[in-house]
């Protein structure tokens, strides 16, 4: 199972080389700026900026398209419904249905904003291995308990998924019906879920004991972060400026 967006994390590019904390803050500010866009006049600029960062990160387009597939379905529904449901100025009249100008603008806004944010998320999380990203989040002030939970969760997710698959195989071999809802469906699913909870609970106890033996929970000095070079600061400043410009423009047009 391909879990984290690791497959292009070792590509050589300016974005990959950008110091992790600067990259995190910079790209996140652009994401916020894209979410702030409220006028279609700003969409071309947003697309240009976001496209520029994606190209600079040297991530393949196929990566973007596969990741767009799922949210694309939801967006398609929005784009198909909103032009009919929003606005007062009729743009096209088709029998009893009318397409409104405001609705069209709204649909374009939602679709573009969504695409831009998603593309930037790929730049944010696809340009570093999982562990670096998590360490960066810790360095930027995410609570230690949350970071620890993320690490454990990531470590055991694939295992848990495999556990569910094997259990479902075992159930199917013993004739479990998966396509019909009858009196036994819910008790079986409940026992399946419950037994997986118990198994993971017991496993977590063993994991915790093994960790305690090796000193988990002791106060340790925080890891030292790599130095931030002038070029990293410059990239961050430029990105923050772009984001600020977008937000200001949105405020003025809105």
């Amino acid at each position: 199972m391909e879990l984290w967006l690791d497959q292009y994390a070792t590509v050589q590019s300016p974005v990959h080389r950008w110091e992790a904390r600067c990259r995190f803050v910079g790209v996140l500010s652009l994401i916020i700026a894209c979410a702030a866009i409220n006028h279609i006049a700003l969409l071309p600029f947003a697309v240009l900026i976001v496209g520029g960062y994606y190209l600079a990160a040297r991530l393949p387009l196929s990566f973007l398209f596969t990741r767009l597939r799922y949210p694309g379905m939801f967006l398609l529904v929005v784009v198909a419904v909103v032009p009919f449901a929003t606005g007062t100025t009729v743009f096209v009249q088709a029998g009893p249905l009318s397409i409104y100008q405001e609705g069209l603008a709204q649909a374009a806004l939602i679709a573009t904003r969504s695409g831009c944010i998603l593309t930037l998320s790929l730049v944010l999380f696809g340009t570093a291995p999982f562990l670096i990203t998590v360490r960066t989040m810790r360095a930027l002030g995410v609570p230690a308990l949350l970071v620890d939970m993320m690490l454990f969760f990531y470590r055991y997710l694939a295992d848990t998924a495999a556990l569910l698959t094997r259990r479902q195989h075992a159930l199917r071999l013993r004739g479990m019906q998966t396509r019909r809802l009858d009196g036994r469906t819910l008790p079986t699913v409940a026992a399946l879920t419950g037994s997986m909870l118990v198994q993971s609970f017991e496993r977590s106890e063993r994991v915790y004991h093994a960790m305690r033996v090796r000193g988990y929970g002791q106060a340790v000095a925080p890891p030292t972060n790599p130095p931030i070079h002038p070029a990293d600061w410059l990239g961050l400043a430029a990105t923050l400026l772009l984001a600020a410009l977008l937000v200001c423009a949105a405020l003025m047009l809105g």
Partner: peptide, 26 residues
């Protein structure tokens, strides 16, 4: 019939009797 490598993956009911009966009921 298949016996899985790890019995914990096969046993999931709250009692032994229920577990053995699971496939028979099916």
């Amino acid at each position: 019939g298949m016996l899985f490598q790890n019995p914990d993956e096969q046993l999931f009911c709250p009692s032994v009797r229920d577990d053995i009966a699971f496939g028979v009921v099916n």
